[in-house]
């Protein structure tokens, strides 16, 4: 029999689903509130998935629903924004799998390469039917969104529709999105920037000076580019907004948690204790180890990534390792 019914239900272009309730989600809600204030009746509805939907005495902002019912959050949403650490993404993807539809757009802000060399988009692909994946990269500083500054960020997707949908959503907002199709490149530099931050923080604590810091950051980008080349990334991505554009401002701000982690290592604190002190997700540590392991099987030389990985595994002394890396020509 001929099936003449086209797929139902259709998606709601004004519904945004958010998974994760961290700082980024708060910043996004602020953005949405600003857009909604000017849009009136055409307001965006935001559903936020959180384990504890109760806000205590506070009532949620207009147009925002906090709930622990995942299906309610996802249902008919045009866009699903996933703002969880890379290390939690596989779990989230598995939970999403029964609820999502092939025409939904998913946006990822997670940065990291997980065990088995999985990029965030690989995890979504491996666990769900979603194909319209967008990666948000570049210097997206939550604190700056909070104070209402204009932001620049990168949106990477192979699908034009993802770009259009995101632009439509943020059209009047405070973020300018630069578009690229280099999904792999943006994810690799996003993940490996953290290795460079760890090295930069360590160099600072060891008193190696600004030049050494610069060299380590530059090497971080170069090594990320080498890794990217193996996966078909565009070399230009690494010197664009998602690469240099992110590394320059971040490496000079002292708040980045990977820089702080690097500083603690530089002070001679053991990796495990340093991580405990940071008390936040350190995706960069996992990414570094995964990529170092991968480079061995491929016989690809990545001195900085290997050095940091060896330090994290306590196979080598930090000062010696950085010294050896710095003595190599770029």
């Amino acid at each position: 029999m001929v099936n003449t019914n086209y797929p139902k239900p259709s998606l709601d272009n004004k519904k945004l689903a958010i998974i994760g309730n961290g700082n980024l989600t708060k910043a996004v809600l602020r953005l949405v509130a600003a857009v909604n204030a000017s849009n009136g009746a055409d307001a965006t509805q935001v559903f936020v998935y959180t384990r504890q939907p109760s806000l205590g005495s506070l009532s949620p902002p207009v147009g925002v629903v906090f709930t622990n019912h995942l299906s309610e959050v996802i249902q008919r949403a045009r866009i699903i924004l996933v703002a969880v650490p890379a290390t939690a993404l596989a779990d989230v993807a598995q939970k999403l799998s029964p609820h999502v539809l092939p025409d939904q757009v998913i946006l990822l802000v997670s940065r990291g390469i997980t065990e088995g060399f999985y990029l965030p988009s690989d995890l979504i692909r491996a666990h769900t039917c979603l194909r319209k994946i967008g990666i948000i990269g570049g210097p997206l500083h939550v604190r700056e969104i909070e104070v209402g500054r204009r932001m620049n960020a990168v949106i990477a997707s192979k699908f034009d529709e993802v770009i259009q949908v995101v632009r439509a959503f943020t059209g009047m907002g405070a973020i300018s999105f630069q578009h690229t199709r280099d999904v792999v490149g943006v994810q690799i530099i996003g993940a490996l920037a953290n290795t460079a931050y760890i090295a930069a923080g360590a160099a600072e604590a060891l008193g190696l000076g600004q030049t050494a810091r610069g060299v380590l950051i530059a090497r971080g980008i170069i090594e990320a580019r080498i890794v990217g080349a193996s996966f078909g990334a565009n070399p230009e991505t690494f010197f664009g907004l998602a690469g240099l554009g992110e590394l320059i401002p971040r490496s000079v701000t002292s708040l980045e948690r990977h820089i702080q982690f690097g500083r603690l290592l530089g002070q001679g604190i053991y990796p495990k204790e340093a991580a405990e002190q940071i008390a936040d997700h350190l995706e960069g540590a996992t990414s570094t180890k995964v990529v170092a392991e991968w480079s061995k099987t491929k016989s690809i030389s990545l001195p900085l990534i290997t050095a940091i990985s060896d330090v994290l595994d306590q196979k080598a002394q930090l000062a010696d390792q950085l010294d050896a890396v710095l003595s190599k020509p770029l």
């Binding site: 086209y6 797929p7 092939p102 025409d103 666990h127 034009d160």
Partner: peptide
């Protein structure tokens, strides 16, 4: 899906509520 849930694969092809072809997609 990879996890074994059924998927209405026609939805990959929707633009609005129409099945379309789109070379880049």
């Amino acid at each position: 899906t990879p996890g074994g849930h059924s998927v209405d694969d026609r939805r990959y092809l929707l633009k609005g509520d129409q099945i379309t072809s789109d070379p880049s997609r």
